[in-house]
C-alpha cells in the first residue's frame, strides 16, 4: 500500500482488497473521488490501479509528480475516470499534457438523468462531451443502461459493474428469517416501501435497518425492526451475509452496489427492474428478485416471501443461482471494459 501526500490516495486497502484480477485489465488505472462512496465501491471491485482524488482539493505539484512517475513506472496506457468533477477534469488535462497520445483517457459516468435536478451533473456531462470532441477523452461510457439515449455522444453499450471478490466459502450463521434494509431515509431510496414489505411478510422475523422509518409507527407495529445504525463497508457485507435477503427497491438506480455486495456474500437482493443487460435480465435470480413497480409493497412482499421460502426448501438451488449470477456479472463486466477500452 502506498498513499502519496497532498491530495491523492494510491491503492489504499479498501480500494484493492476486494478487487478482481484480470491479465488485460490489471494495467488499467482507475481514478475516482474518495468521497463519492457508491462509485468508489464499484471501482474497488475492478482490476487495476486505484487512485482516489478529491473534488474538494486539487492534488499538489508533488502529488502530480508522484502520479506521473507512477504512470510511467507501471507503463499505464489506459486511465479510466470513474465519474467526473472539476478537479478530475483538471487532472485529466494535466495528464494528457504530460503523456500525450501515449496514454488514453476514458470516462465512465455513474449518473441517471433522474438526478439532473442537481445541475452539476449536466455541467460535468457537457465537459466530458467537450473533452471527447477535443481529443482529451477517447471514449465516454456509462453504467446506466441506454445512457446514449440521454447523451448521444456516449458509448451505446453499458459498462457492467461486478461484485466484490470474496475468496472461498464464508463461515455463515445465516438467519434466513432476517432481512437487511440498508438504505437512507429519502424519497429516492424508498425506505418505507421496503420496510412495509418486510413488515407484511410473514416469513420475516427481523428487519435490520440502518435508518429508522420515522413515523411509520402511526400505521404499523414496528417490533420486527431493529436499528443497527451506520455500518462500515466490510461490516455491512458481513451483516448481509447473515440475513436471508436484502431489501433494496429504490426509485432510481444504475447498478446498485448494495445488491452486488450482497450477492458476493451469497445473499439475494430485492429490487425494482434494472434492465442492465439482456443476459442479466433473463437470469433466474433477476426474475426471482426484481419487482415491476418499485413502490408495490404487495409485489415486493410476495417476492421476498418467495426468496425466503427458497432458503428453507432448496437453499442449494438458491446458492447456485446466486453464484451463477455473480459469475455472469463478472464475465459481462470484463467483456464490457475490454471492449470499451479497445
Amino acid at each position: 500500500m502506498l498513499v502519496s501526500e497532498h491530495g491523492l490516495l494510491f491503492n489504499v486497502s479498501s480500494d484493492t482488497e476486494r478487487a478482481h484480477a484480470h491479465p488485460e485489465l490489471d494495467g488499467v488505472m482507475h481514478v475516482f473521488d474518495a468521497y463519492w462512496h457508491g462509485i468508489r465501491s464499484a471501482t474497488a471491485c475492478l482490476p487495476g490501479h486505484k487512485i482516489a482524488i478529491s473534488h474538494k482539493k486539487l492534488p499538489s505539484g508533488d502529488a502530480l509528480h508522484h502520479l506521473f512517475a507512477y504512470i510511467d513506472h507501471h507503463r499505464i496506457r489506459h486511465i479510466c475516470f470513474q465519474a467526473m468533477s472539476e478537479n478530475g477534469l483538471k487532472l485529466a488535462e494535466l495528464t494528457k499534457r504530460e503523456f500525450g497520445d501515449a496514454v488514453d483517457l476514458y470516462v465512465v459516468t455513474h449518473v441517471s438523468s433522474a438526478q439532473f435536478e442537481n445541475h452539476f451533473e449536466m455541467h460535468m456531462l457537457k465537459a466530458m462531451v467537450d473533452g471527447q470532441e477535443a481529443g482529451l477523452f477517447r471514449r465516454l461510457g456509462a453504467v446506466k443502461p441506454r445512457f446514449h439515449g440521454v447523451v448521444p455522444e456516449f458509448w451505446p453499450k453499458t459498462i457492467i459493474n461486478m461484485a466484490p471478490r470474496i475468496d472461498g466459502p464464508l463461515p455463515v450463521l445465516r438467519e434466513v428469517d432476517a432481512v437487511l434494509l440498508p438504505v437512507e431515509n429519502n424519497w429516492r431510496k424508498n425506505l418505507y416501501t421496503n420496510a412495509l414489505a418486510g413488515l407484511h411478510c410473514d416469513a420475516v422475523k427481523t428487519i435490520y435497518v440502518v435508518n429508522w422509518p420515522s413515523a411509520l409507527e402511526n400505521l404499523q407495529e414496528l417490533k420486527k425492526i431493529k436499528w443497527i445504525g451506520f455500518m462500515r463497508p466490510g461490516q455491512i457485507m458481513a451483516r448481509a451475509a447473515s440475513c436471508g435477503a436484502i431489501l433494496h427497491s429504490s426509485l432510481i438506480e444504475c447498478q446498485p452496489m448494495t445488491m452486488l455486495e450482497g450477492l458476493a456474500v451469497g445473499t439475494p437482493c430485492l429490487s425494482g427492474r434494472l434492465g442492465v443487460h439482456p443476459e442479466i435480465d433473463a437470469h433466474p435470480l433477476s426474475r426471482l428478485c426484481e419487482v415491476e413497480y418499485v413502490d408495490d409493497v404487495g409485489a415486493l412482499q410476495t417476492a421476498l416471501g418467495d426468496v425466503l421460502s427458497l432458503w428453507r426448501h432448496d437453499a442449494s438451488a438458491l446458492r447456485e443461482m446466486i453464484a451463477d449470477h455473480v459469475a455472469l456479472r463478472k464475465r459481462l463486466c470484463v467483456a464490457s471494459y475490454l471492449e470499451f477500452l479497445s
Partner: peptide, 8 residues
C-alpha cells in the same frame, strides 16, 4: 449477526 460479522 454480530458473531457473523467477526466470522466474516
Amino acid at each position: 449477526a454480530e458473531i457473523n460479522e467477526r466470522l466474516f
